[in-house]
């Protein structure tokens, strides 16, 4: 074998090995979550709030409720801003300000979650003088908006320009073209993007630490402190009690399931869009 051929084989082996390694790591992590998570699952886990200090049993119903409420409200707040900003950028392609907006969206996507959390604290919690689920939702909305903006723009750019021109040629105004043609044509893609963004914020912990703060009770009032699955995992993971550590694993399992579900729905929608395009 010539050295070149040898190098070719060695490098081929190495790149394949790194792929195998990645899969191995993933399998190990998922396996741990699955095994440790399922082991301690029981009905109470889903339906009960945490047991009072010192007692055994109890569950994370409070955190499940919290994750749903906080995520949904964050998405509800963030969607209009993100979508309209995305529409703006897509409709003003090539203009200087649209480029600035896009750059800001990109930059905001890179803001560390803990910074979002601190901002939520100083901007909302300090002003309202109370920890609250709502301030957590608003903090998460700051993460939700830039991703939604980018997704909306990208999906709108996929709408064939011929369709928009046909609408304009019929005398439609821009708002009508965007709503009735672009958005409708891109609806599945945008929904998919929203679901992906929701999957992302549903797993965020740092923005909740100093805003939602956590609560041992099942809380439905957005103006009060509230728990959430990621928060509960963090707190239980750091607890010295094995029973709580076990609950952290189970909560992690539930959270991963939830996120997978959201991602799966998003993928499914995307697949449908691609089929329609083809």
């Amino acid at each position: 074998m010539t050295p070149r051929k040898l190098k070719n084989s060695v490098m081929g082996f190495l790149v394949a090995a790194s792929a195998v390694l990645l899969i191995a790591v993933l399998v190990v992590i998922v396996w741990h979550i699955f095994i440790s998570g399922v082991k301690y699952l029981n009905w109470n886990f889903f339906t009960k709030a945490p047991a009072p200090m010192g007692e055994s049993g109890g569950g994370v119903f409070n955190a499940i409720v919290g994750t749903f409420l906080i995520t949904l409200v964050a998405a509800a707040i963030g969607t209009p801003f993100g979508m309209f900003a995305g529409i703006y950028v897509a409709e003003h392609r090539g203009r200087r300000f649209a480029d600035v907006v896009r750059l800001c969206a990109d930059a905001l996507q890179g803001v560390p979650s803990i910074v979002i959390g601190i901002f939520g604290y100083t901007f909302l919690v300090v002003r309202f003088r109370s920890y609250s689920a709502l301030s957590a939702s608003i903090a998460l909305a700051f993460m939700f908006v830039p991703t939604t903006t980018r997704v909306t723009e990208e999906v709108l750019n996929l709408v064939p320009s011929g369709l928009k021109e046909a609408a304009y040629a019929l005398g439609a105004r821009q708002s009508s073209v965007v709503w009735n043609v672009s958005i409708k044509t891109a609806a599945a893609g945008i929904t998919s993007g929203l679901l992906t963004s929701m999957a992302r914020i549903a797993g965020e912990t740092a923005p909740l630490l100093f805003t939602a703060f956590g609560s041992r009770y099942v809380e439905w009032n957005m103006l009060r402190p509230m728990s959430a699955l990621p928060l509960q995992i963090f707190i239980y993971a750091g607890s010295p009690y094995p029973a709580l550590q076990q609950q952290a694993w189970s909560a992690a399992f539930v959270l991963v399931l939830l996120i997978l579900l959201l991602q799966y729905s998003a993928k499914h929608l995307i697949a449908r869009v691609l089929r329609v395009k083809a």
């Binding site: 990645l22 790591v25 993933l26 992590i29 979550i33 979650s113 999957a199 992302r200 549903a202 797993g203 965020e204 912990t205 740092a206 990621p230 995992i233 963090f234 993971a237 992690a252 959270l255 991963v256 996120i259 991602q263």
Partner: peptide
């Protein structure tokens, strides 16, 4: 893997 939350 990229979508798993940091806390996990």
């Amino acid at each position: 893997l990229g979508g798993l939350p940091s806390v996990i």
